[in-house]
Design a protein around this nucleic acid. Structure first.
Lengths: 183, 183
DNA sequence: CAGAGATTTCAGAAATTTCTGAAATTTAGG
DNA sequence: CCTAAATTTCAGAAATTTCTGAAATCTCTG
């Protein structure tokens, strides 16, 4: 399988960006390739399209599976695994956000609660700072949980609503939460 | 400067998490330390609180400054630089989001537009996929731009509103955007 | 249940990133 | 200007991550 110049450039870009996101170049490239392919691809095809080793492909696919970012397909009379990305981009975004939350936010939230549990450590400022941070993260993850429940159509509406949001908030009248001390 | 056990644990956690976020351990630790300190700290103090080399501290602080995540303070009769984090956690979050967008999203958006400009490449599926992705990212960054305009108080209201959002959307009646093909 | 095809594992090689110490540069007073 | 304090730069060392090839494992099918 030879890549078109378009595919080539897209794949290389995602490879480079990969490192800014917490994934490595190969994983980024594999995902980009799958993303642009109408038909599912097997490991062998990916391997020579990207010019990497077979084992590297295997590890990359495993990584993508652990992120729930690829789907597995099979064809009759062929026992190799074929991989695709979901058709629905929103599904991809949802998965990405959920996984990043799980890896980047949740462990910290747990740790903060743990630290608060350990009781007064005689450092008032640090303690206040930590619980303020915990509260903020809880508020944000709570909001995220609500967003997660919305089906795509409503979410799209919400996003395109844009400028009307400020008005909406006022019209709804919001409880004034304790968090808003500063600014 | 010796760290309390609370500070110690917090700092180490942020060091470890650092790698999941796109920053390195030292940078994470420095930020964590500053975050918990009421008073601004100078490079020397940071260096020995964390047990790292002076030059490493210098690089870490430079990195944090490039992220706009620290503020510089000076004291009369002392020409060393002292560093703090903003008091307002929301400001920190805003900065963080803005910088990550700049580094992780914007370059990709630019690249996608570039690829579309290059005109038909005879790969309909890939082309469609790319512009669908570009549209989605534009919608999300557009929404983000609106959110960015909201002052903290309204943002907090919006977040605590939570479950009422679905209703709000309906009451506002939203244009049905083309993007909602699937799901 | 033998064997061929497919995938995974894994130890070490290669590449990249992070960190250090020494030297260079900057800056404010004297 | 000169000096000394503070900071930055930078080449190489150390650590970490990524990638490979070979061997091991798994899994269908005849």
């Amino acid at each position: 399988m030879t890549l078109t110049p378009l595919q080539q450039e897209f794949v290389l870009h995602f490879g480079e960006m990969g490192s800014r996101w917490g994934i490595n170049r190969t994983v980024g490239q594999i995902y980009a390739l799958l993303f642009l392919s109408r038909e599912p691809l097997n490991a062998e095809t990916i391997t020579d399209a990207l010019g990497i080793s077979r084992s590297n492909t295997s590890m990359g696919l495993k990584e993508l599976q652990s992120w729930n970012l690829v789907r597995l397909k099979h064809f009759p009379g062929d026992r190799r695994d074929y991989f695709t990305t979901p058709d629905d981009l929103w599904e991809i975004v949802r998965t990405l956000v959920a996984e990043r939350k799980k890896r980047e936010i949740d462990p910290t939230l747990t740790k903060l609660r743990e630290l608060e549990m350990q009781g007064p450590a005689g450092d008032d400022y640090a303690e206040a700072r930590i619980s303020e941070l915990r509260e903020l993260i809880e508020m944000m993850t709570g909001f995220y949980a609500e967003m997660e429940k919305l089906e795509t159509e409503r979410l799209v509406k919400l996003m395109t609503l844009g400028s009307r949001i400020a008005g909406l908030i006022d019209r709804t009248g919001g409880m004034i939460p304790s968090l808003t001390k500063r600014k």
